[in-house]
Design a protein around this nucleic acid. Structure first.
Lengths: 216, 216
DNA sequence: CGACTAATATTTACGCTGTAAACTTTCGGG
DNA sequence: CCCGAAAGTTTACAGCGTAAATATTAGTCG
């Protein structure tokens, strides 16, 4: 018998793995109905448990939201890493693929992505799990930029490299989600735009290392 | 006698200019206590009016939040325009100043800035006022990029120009606010970073027009 | 194996919120 | 001056987060 899922019987007093079930339900709610519909009672209802049960696993509503955010950051970091591994050995391509994956993630999971950068999660000090998840996601980009800088003279911009890389894809993602670039965009179009933008930025970084003194 | 402010007497049944007073109070609350504390009752209390009075001027809570967001976008657009006017005649400098002003606005009004890009305001279709305010803000950047392209061969990237420009400063602002770049940053440091980043991007755009075929 | 303890889940209750409905007060145009 | 419309108030209700007390189960030690 599986140790985590004891018995098939319904209506057990103890759920067995409520914490995970709760964040799963929470992620579901966010994806389908947006962050506004995410609440302790809603999530408890969805799992089929009393409205106070979640308090055994989360201090308060903010902790639940933070858990969903952390889940999102981990997922994003994983997808970026995987996309980079698919073009291993070519650091420049890796960086571009990472950027495209970032934008694709935002377009594919708009509600979750928005929650991850919502004001509710702005102060990450109270939620260490969320803080490290967010930092590690950013860290993946940093590593890729660093590796690029190692094999290529481009992108050796010091702290400016990862900053510009992250800023570009994040800003692009937000623009796409808020439909500031026009009507809703599907995955493939978003990828094309991201490809173009990352290429532009890449050439830009390359040039910057060459003509440093040129000023506007 | 001033037509908008009739009599100095306190405790009048009709407020006279409640709509504006409400958004002013709402902006105050957002700035000091964050978007989470913004509610119809809170705002009514602050103005000294019954908790149902706001419904004569806003359909619901979402409409109030949208009004605050629109206020923020208009303020941002105004500040960008003003900073650009101070270096009129030098389109390249104008674009850079606009970017710096954008970042400075975010650092100076963090809570308001976050609300402007909060999930609550993601769908602007239901709030035309907010939609046009946001579009016009983005439009200011578009115009500046276009003017730069007119006098300078740089930045002639088609749709990519404003996209990259906006993405960069927005992403940078978010990174600064979320303290992903380290401990809290004051206005002057933020300006320095923004200056460096915009210079990098400028050189990048310039180079891109030259070596278009270069690929990562 | 049985009993004690800590972890987990439930019930009840309270104050807060958004908002609907009915009411009162005031403003402005014939 | 009057009367309708606009603006503000009062009352009421459901849903939310959460505190406190209670009930059920799981794991551990004798």
């Amino acid at each position: 018998m599986h140790p985590t899922k004891r018995r098939r019987s319904r209506r057990r007093y103890h759920h067995g793995d409520l914490a995970n079930a709760l964040v799963a339900a929470a992620v579901d709610i966010v994806q389908s109905q947006g962050a506004g519909a995410l609440g302790l009672r809603a999530v408890a209802r969805k799992v089929g448990v009393s409205h106070m049960a979640p308090y055994n696993h989360f201090d308060d509503r903010a902790a639940l939201v933070a858990a969903v955010g952390a889940h999102g950051f981990r997922k994003l970091a994983r997808e970026i890493r995987e996309s980079a591994e698919q073009v291993a050995g070519r650091p420049a391509r890796q960086l571009q693929e990472a950027g495209i994956t970032y934008v694709r993630f935002a377009v594919a999971n708009p509600q979750l992505f928005r929650l991850m950068f919502s004001p509710e999660l702005a102060d990450k000090r109270a939620h260490p799990d969320l803080a490290t998840a967010a930092q590690q996601t950013f860290g993946v980009l940093e590593d890729l930029v660093e590796q690029s800088a190692g094999t290529d003279a481009r992108a050796q911009q010091g702290a400016m490299g990862p900053l510009v890389a992250w800023s570009l894809v994040h800003g692009l993602a937000v623009l796409l989600l808020d439909q500031q670039l026009g009507p809703p965009v599907d995955l493939q179009v978003a990828e094309q735009i991201a490809r173009g933008a990352t290429e532009a930025i890449w050439v830009g970084l390359a040039a910057t290392t060459r003509e440093r003194k040129s000023q506007p």
